[in-house]
Design a binder for these strands. Structure first.
Lengths: 256, 256
DNA sequence: TTAACCATAATTGTATTCAAAATTTCCAAT
DNA sequence: ATTGGAAATTTTGAATACAATTATGGTTAA
């Protein structure tokens, strides 16, 4: 169902394991990624862990420093804005291409169904955290379904690599009820534009939809993100300035 | 002058070494990257080579297959078109942002100087291959100078990662005199739009400039690229179908 | 108390070793 | 000659060993 062929390689397992923990926020920004520690946690040797770390570094999740190892990349609030800016143009383009190609009947049905499910949650006065999480899951699928139809595999790859980067941050920002409503409304409009063949308009709506998410993020918790983020690494070999000495207290809380 | 701080790590050296050889075309698309072979060539152990390969894989240069190692990613002509499509929107956005921020006097002077140097070559009736190479170098700087001013470090990173990908292919396509002229004219227009504060127009011109490069590529050597490219990998774990048995004949021609 | 310095420990960078999988080679059978 | 298959070789995946650098901790002196 998942289309995932068996990845027996420990490097792959370590990669996914670590990536999830970064996106979860279990490894916060600036966190020192100890190779030995990770190897012990995963019950493998350092070799596959190193492969995984190298890949995550190339993808921007980690930042490397000579003889000092890897850290979770520190994104300032400006960085996140910048990432959302890129996401906006990439995903708007994906929507445009997808719209130009035309949506199949089954795809429209799936998107409609997803929208309906999200709407259900939106109209629940006091939705639970679980329901909000479900909304986010549906939201993710909605976007992805549209993008997957765009026919530009490389664009998809770029989107995938940018969409996950600020994921760790997103955990800090809770969605309010109005934001869910707003988001849902945007989805409805985008879907309407797509089904009526207005690819360019759909693209513009998607761009604004992502801009809205960006702005939502900027106004809310500037304190939290701003205090932790000191420096923009984002390129190999640059120094990053982070508190140092925050090693303890994270290793044991995994899988509590 | 290069701003490169000492990278003693063998992994880093191997990374750059291999990447250059991929972009050079010394390692053609689909080429099997033997860890042992590379290790012997570089006079280091397999360990740093593996790190380098993992990074290059994450960046899209290489494609990995379980128990079968790495290969140079095979791009079909459609892939290259797709990449140029993404480049167009990314670099147009960089131009727009750069224009909105405004260009400093010194930057304008530098861009003007670069344009002048390129113009010189354009107006030489029979320019040498060396001069064409110089044009390409200036061209690259021109683009880069504009982008670097955009203020979105993440966008720059994305551009850097996409711009190099089809570099190997670009070696197959020789620039004709008219194409140089066309390219130069576009630069002049873009620079004019930027200096007159028309950021959006500059962005549009850049988009078309890159589209022109894309189309130039599509019409020329479809045979060459089409015959070598069989399948679009571009995502980890997918199978790629390449001739197989093309190992010999490459190892010895390096550093002849 | 603080600063400096040396010793110790821990971590990273690299090489080597070993096992498992894949490729190649070679031989036999059709 | 071609095909099939089994042994041999090569290559990848992973673990371990070792060297070099960095972090830590404690002792001493001001």
């Amino acid at each position: 169902m998942d289309g995932k062929m068996e990845d027996n390689s420990l490097a792959q397992i370590a990669y996914e394991h670590i990536k999830v923990r970064i996106c979860d926020g279990q490894f916060p920004m600036g966190h020192k990624m100890s190779e030995t520690q990770l190897a012990r946690d995963t019950q493998v040797s350092r070799t596959p862990v190193r492969i995984a770390l190298a890949r995550l570094e190339a993808e921007g999740f980690l930042t490397w420093e000579a003889n000092r190892g890897y850290r979770v990349t520190v994104f300032s609030i400006e960085d996140v804005r910048a990432i959302y800016g890129v996401r906006a143009i990439l995903e708007a383009e994906a929507v445009r291409l997808s719209g130009r190609r035309g949506l199949s009947a089954v795809l429209v049905r799936e998107l409609t169904e997803l929208t309906r499910q999200m709407e259900e949650i939106v109209y629940i006065p006091d939705h639970s955290a679980e329901q909000r999480a479900w909304f986010l899951k549906m939201n993710h699928r909605f976007h992805r379904q549209i993008y997957d139809n765009c026919g530009n595999e490389f664009l998809l790859r770029q989107i995938a690599s940018t969409a996950d980067l600020p994921l760790a941050l997103r955990n800090f920002f809770s969605f309010s009820a109005e934001q869910l409503t707003e988001s849902h409304a945007a989805h409805v409009n985008i879907l309407a534009a797509l089904t009526s063949g207005e690819a360019d308009r759909a693209a513009g709506l998607m761009r604004e939809h992502i801009w809205a998410a960006r702005d939502r993020m900027s106004v809310k918790k500037t304190k939290r993100a701003g205090s932790q983020a000191r420096r923009v690494p984002m390129s190999r070999g640059k120094r990053i300035l982070v508190p140092a000495k925050e090693r303890a207290g994270i290793r044991k809380e995994s899988e509590g």
